[in-house]
Amino acid sequence: MTIADLQQFAPPATSATVEPGGIGVAGLPANFVAAAEPHTVTGTLFGAPLSVRFTPTSYEYSYGDGTSALLTTPGRSWADLGQAQFTPTPTSHVYERRGVFFADVDIHYTAEIDLGGGWIPVTGEIITDGPPQRIRVLDARTALVAHTCTERGDAPGC
């Protein structure tokens, strides 16, 4: 039995969530979180009943801007980490420019089977291909008015 034989039992793909609310700010960290847990299913393979247990081992984040990271943590929300928004986390990413990006997370799983006598590891891994998530990255301006004096000479304070 090979890992390819177990593909039919693979966990469903997981979407990454991006804090805050699928929006990023150019030059500041956006926080990525993937919710994946061990997944056990039962079924029949080659006419024999079995249980298959998949355990997530790594998370391959593709950020949509040409960069990616292979991490061993699914990430946690800023609230769970006790951190303020836009602070770095082990799974955060900084977009250098504004725009719309499509990011995803592919999750790597190891597998074990149980044919009735205990768990047996299977060599290899299964990778689930996560669906793309739309992320809108904005520019932030630190000003008390909507426009600079260069942009609009009649703005308050000009």
Rank of each mutant, 00 (worst) to 15 (best):
M1A: 10
T2H: 10
A4V: 02
A4H: 03
Q8C: 00
F9C: 08
A10E: 03
P12F: 01
P12A: 08
A13P: 10
A13C: 06
T14A: 15
S15H: 05
A16E: 03
A16G: 05
T17F: 01
V18I: 15
G22E: 09
I23Q: 14
V25H: 02
L28S: 10
L28P: 04
P29L: 02
F32M: 07
A34W: 01
A34D: 04
A34C: 03
A35P: 02
A35H: 05
A36M: 03
P38D: 07
V41S: 09
T42S: 15
G43C: 09
G43V: 07
G43P: 04
F46M: 15
A48V: 07
L50F: 01
R53E: 09
F54A: 12
T57C: 12
Y59C: 01
E60K: 14
E60I: 07
S62E: 10
S62K: 09
S62F: 06
Y63P: 03
Y63R: 09
G66M: 09
T67W: 05
S68C: 12
A69M: 06
L71S: 02
L71R: 13
G75H: 00
S77K: 10
W78S: 14
A79H: 04
D80K: 15
D80I: 02
G82T: 08
F86L: 15
P90R: 02
T91V: 03
H93K: 13
H93S: 12
V94R: 03
E96T: 13
E96S: 14
R97Y: 05
V100Q: 14
A103N: 07
A103G: 11
A103T: 05
D104L: 14
V105T: 07
D106F: 10
I107P: 01
I107E: 03
I107A: 12
T110I: 11
G116V: 13
G117D: 15
G118R: 09
W119Q: 15
I120P: 02
P121K: 11
P121L: 08
G124E: 11
P131N: 06
P132E: 06
R134Y: 01
R134V: 06
I135T: 06
I135M: 12
V137N: 07
L138N: 14
L138M: 14
A140K: 11
A146D: 15
A146S: 15
G153H: 14
G153R: 13
D154I: 08
D154F: 03
P156V: 02
P156N: 12
C158K: 12
